[in-house]
Amino acid sequence: MPDDPITKVSIIISKGSLEGIYPGLILANGARMEGIEANVFFTFFGMDAIHRERHEHVKVAAVGNPGLHLATWVGGVPGMSSIVTHQLAKKMEELDIPPIPEFVELIADSGAGLYACQASVDMFGLTRADFIDQVEDVITVGEFYERAAGGQIIFT
């Protein structure tokens, strides 16, 4: 007997770097493209993806990122993070992967629910107004679990 198909996912995006944010966005968009219900919960530095001023400036971490295969001191050269980010952004555009602000809007338009984490909002001294309009609400962890009921939870 085939396994039951996934019908609902709730994706948590907790990291603020480019490589921390994209996987969750791709999972959310991919879910909607398969007709799967999706919620995205942004917490800690992952909230940069929905922050009005910051979402256009998310970068690849050039320091402490062994995946880049750069010598540690090279990663620390001023501007290195921007260079690596620029290269990756160019490649992504070629592959028709949208920049973060456009991608988040696409996911919201696809009917996924976007939420910010109450604890992180309090911790960083933010308010609802700091977030893009597509964010439905700032919710507590308990409310997140209520919205996630009946589906899978994916932490990124």
Partner: peptide
């Protein structure tokens, strides 16, 4: 996009 998902809810 919004309308695409209204027209084709299953993707």
């Amino acid at each position: 996009v919004k309308e695409l998902y209204q027209l084709f809810p299953k993707g």
